[in-house]
Design a protein around this nucleic acid. Structure first.
Lengths: 231, 231, 231, 231
DNA sequence: CATGAATGAGAGTTCATTCAT
DNA sequence: AATGAATGAACTCTCATTCAT
């Protein structure tokens, strides 16, 4: 219930949005490649630490230990480095890689594994996801990026729901796409609240246990689609 | 399933956060009151049009037809006007006022009415909700404000779920608070996607019909809690 | 042979070019007017001293004894101050005001007076004329400004030549406009060489006497049109 | 009336100005010679296209298909390439090569041929002349270069005028040097207006016919010196 | 209370020049 | 000789905030 080709985002279907379509050509020398990599790494670190808006270009170059001007050898502006950062993290974030689900045909287990994988990936990249939410509020290109990422998940889940409906496992009354929007959304809000907002506020809220999260959303999702055979 | 005292936000339980604790005392003269009101109104307009970050203080004073300096007679900074704007809209946004649901005890109808009221309120204040999402990404005080608003809904819905569980109408396996987080979250994402992001993109997506929205989320919510006696 | 309405430049016939169409509205307070005037005055001084390109905006504000930011209260950029400077000097530069030529009908005297007035005005504003030549090489709007200024002189001189031809005083073989282009051009190069380039190089060239200049160009001009009755 | 030794500019009389006194010795290898030539050629192209100021060194190296650093193997800076470009074009610009004027002693025909040759050369090198005007406004060394070039023409024309005066063909009242300054200036302004400014504005002005130009300036020049025997 | 000009710190960006490879 | 990445000084412009009138 969770397998999208990476090109589906910023790829084949829709044309990539501005800052993602690499303008600068990749560095031709090794030294150049090293510097570029250092900048991307530094950018991720600083963005995650200070947020997109509070990051000055010089903070990045300082962190990457290079001159302010060097930044412009590789990127036209803040947006472009961020795009590079996201592109680099994309793989891991889109392919939760849910391990091998025992090839039980049991839909509940598959669903649970899928959710666990999604949530684990979200947690691993929590800082970046928080960053994406922030930038999406501010830069249309990244709003679009976020939308496409979301759509990819919604589409693959809608496909899964439709299959289950065909097999008589899921309620046929609901529209698979609408249901997918709602349930995928449900999972992502939970993830956002737990891993992005939940961080650093252990003092004031309930820290939410990872497995509780998995089982709650899985249970609700299964119920919502009226998986049969519930105890 | 939807009745919170307004003070619950920015009120009794938790102490109000900085920009909401009015520093300035209300203007003493009538003229002052008029100017202040004009500023708040202008601020809402400009914020909704240009976004929080792209709004310059002078845009607000220009819109309010008063001098730049006058702003500081009433507010210390951008955050404070925004707080005033939100406080003013709060009432409508927290008390969806779901009309009189026929005092049928039918939980499904009550749920549906509640969702309809929530979604309608969200739609009415869509611009402002979008604004809130934006500021929450940028100003901690508003992140807190948003959290409290969310918590209020979650708490009242958790209470409703617990009641239904007590009456044997809802699945007793799920934790009422966790379930409320998940389902309330589900509804709010749908609202955000439909009314905040959905605007102005009628061309590229499915505009989503309001009643479809209501029935989908209600159906999924009811299923998730395993309301009995489905048609 | 020398009377143009000031509006003829940047006026009625052709619409004014960008930096001349004052964007900023004039300051409403007296203090504002004072600051603006100080900036224009300072700008002229610095421009004439350092040239357009080597002038930093802060040089101007420093000279005007105001903060860097204040500049932008009145002008959008360097071009706009320069436009203000030129506009202010325009009057004097376009209306040489050749004194009262004895109403002798003597065309030679009239011509001579006209040339003397033109050259005197050029000399008075030599620095500014040099500046104009510089900017015209760099900013199309000012190239256009220079062109219009030139055209104004050419047109009025062409009119004068045509009249003299009608009265039988000037050679009827030449085209009045072409002749005016050539002869007006001749006078302006001489002025440029003498007053703009001639300055500060007294050591290396012949400083050229003002009256020699007047009589040379007048004589050549008269000859070129074959004024009769030469001694 | 038009024969100057090439050394007269940047040559014998006055010592050559900085960027013209070749610092670098000519490249020793063939490969070096090729690169240098490519750079000069590229520089001329880019300068003429973008103007001196808007040309970045990398634009030149890019056009020449060589690395940024290679530039400094041959030139110390922008000025120096430009000097090289001008030096290369100099020959053609100084020796209009007016064909063989039938050795009629007819001064009018000689004058006309001379003017035609001058104007044709100007037209051939119009872009470069425009460039020279631009740089002269910005770099003293090129102002000096332009001055010397002008002086060369003025001197040879002054000599011509003096001869005609001696032969009784030209008005003896005028000072040959002053007259030459004025009349040579007249021709060069006309050329500048027609060939440098006139380009690309065919739509808005009279494109000026080449032969009209020749005959107008020749006629006015002859008149100004009072050549006898006018029809 | 209202006004609107004045302030000035701070950010992004460019590009000639250097230099290790 | 050639390469092309690295450098960093310099400059413009923005806007929240103050304050004299």
């Amino acid at each position: 219930m969770d397998t999208t080709a990476p090109e589906e985002i910023g790829g084949e279907k829709a044309p990539p949005v501005a800052p993602f379509s690499q303008l600068r050509e990749p560095p031709s020398t090794q030294r150049g490649a090293r510097t570029r990599a250092a900048l991307v790494k530094a950018a991720r670190k600083v963005f995650e630490r200070d947020g997109y808006l509070d990051t000055r270009l010089t903070d990045i170059t300082k962190e990457a230990r290079c001159a302010a001007g060097s930044f412009y050898t590789y990127f036209a502006n803040k947006e472009e480095v961020l795009a590079a950062v996201l592109l680099e993290a994309q793989e891991d974030m889109m392919h939760p890689g849910m391990g091998r689900v025992q090839d039980t045909d049991d839909p509940y287990s598959v669903l649970e594994a899928s959710n666990r994988a999604y949530l684990a990936a979200y947690q691993r990249n929590a800082k970046l996801m928080g960053l994406l939410e922030q930038v999406a509020q501010v830069e249309p290109e990244f709003r679009e990026f976020r939308r496409r990422r979301g759509e990819a998940f919604i589409r693959r889940n809608a496909r899964g729901i439709a299959e289950l409906q065909a097999r008589g496992v899921a309620d046929r009354e609901v529209d698979p796409v609408m249901a997918s929007r709602a349930l995928s959304g449900m999972v992502s809000v939970m993830a956002y609240n737990a891993f992005v907002l939940g961080e650093g506020q252990e003092e004031e809220g309930t820290p939410v246990d990872f497995e509780d999260l998995v089982s709650t959303v899985t249970r609700l999702w299964a119920n919502a689609l009226r998986f049969p055979g519930h105890r």
